[in-house]
């Protein structure tokens, strides 16, 4: 079981802000998809620190990222 960030892409696409990507301490983990204007998470690399949630929910009040449990192989 891993605790990782999950992006609500429909919500995220509304803003086109990319701030979570800029504040993640993991390289190549939170990325940005230009086609859908949304951030996406490389689940294997996420360590579950929740800094993106702080940026998205606490600082920007946009609530597009949630922490979820995933199992190996998800």
């Amino acid at each position: 079981m891993y605790f990782v960030a999950h992006i609500h892409e429909n919500e995220c696409a509304k803003y086109n802000c990319k701030q979570c990507v800029l504040f993640c301490p993991e390289p190549n983990c939170l990325n940005y998809k230009e086609s859908g204007h949304t951030a996406w998470v490389w689940t294997d690399r996420c360590k579950g620190c929740e800094i993106c949630v702080y940026v998205c929910s606490d600082l920007l009040k946009r609530n597009c990222i949630e922490m979820v449990m995933v199992k190996a192989g998800d």
């Binding site: 990507v21 190549n28 939170l30 990325n31 230009e34 951030a39």
Partner: peptide
């Protein structure tokens, strides 16, 4: 950032 491959892999 997030749109190119970064120098640090992991």
């Amino acid at each position: 950032l997030g749109q190119f491959k970064e120098l640090v892999e992991e």
